[in-house]
Amino acid sequence: MKSFKLYSLDVVGDGNSMEIPLVDGLILNKEDEHSTWLLEAYTNLSLYDYFKKISEEDRDIILEAVITKKENAPAYFQTKICSLIRFEEHISVLFQGQMRRNKSDYSELLLDSLIEKGFKGPDLLKEFKEKMQSKPKIKVKHT
């Protein structure tokens, strides 16, 4: 099992994303036969009802996680909430699931996004190079 600092976390869905403000976060690669990952977000109490509803519906939730430091490309996980604990001022949300895309897929997602925005030729190349350096969040299409 390997553990990492969860630098940032977004819930992704229906062409948009919601940033989860982290007080603290941890991500674990269980390195088991199912390639299971655990992500824990320690966040604002105001998000309790949002996550409680998702948990009660027992539905999948797609997460975009940046691991260890800001410069790293985001990784995508298909998860379910397996624990939701309410504290006085914060909540702990524990997600369990599998990595959906590996980090090398970021360039493909970025390129697709730029083409959809109408970039072509030299402008596409210039914008792609700039975005690969700054690593902006990308809205992911789900089918």
Rank of each mutant, 00 (worst) to 15 (best):
M1S: 13
S3A: 10
L6V: 00
S8H: 08
D10S: 11
G15V: 04
S17L: 12
M18N: 05
M18I: 12
I20V: 15
I20Y: 03
P21G: 03
D24T: 11
D24V: 06
L26Q: 10
I27Q: 01
D32I: 10
E33A: 13
H34K: 15
H34I: 09
S35R: 13
T36H: 08
T36S: 14
W37R: 07
W37F: 15
Y42M: 07
T43R: 04
L45W: 04
D49N: 14
D49K: 10
Y50V: 00
E56V: 06
E56C: 02
E56I: 06
D58P: 01
E64T: 01
I67S: 08
I67D: 05
K70D: 09
K70I: 01
N72K: 13
N72A: 10
A73H: 11
A73Y: 15
Y76N: 00
T79H: 00
T79I: 02
T79Y: 03
I81D: 01
C82Q: 14
S83H: 11
S83Y: 08
L84T: 06
I85P: 04
I85N: 13
R86S: 11
F87R: 10
F87N: 12
E89N: 13
E89C: 01
F95S: 03
F95P: 06
F95I: 08
Q96W: 05
Q96A: 13
M99V: 09
R100S: 10
D105L: 04
Y106R: 06
S107P: 04
S107F: 05
E108Q: 12
D112C: 03
I115D: 00
I115C: 00
K117S: 12
G118F: 08
F119Y: 15
K120S: 10
G121A: 10
L124V: 09
E127Q: 14
K129S: 14
E130R: 12
K131R: 13
M132Q: 13
Q133N: 12
Q133T: 11
K135C: 00
P136G: 08
K137C: 05
K137I: 11
K141Q: 06
T143Q: 10
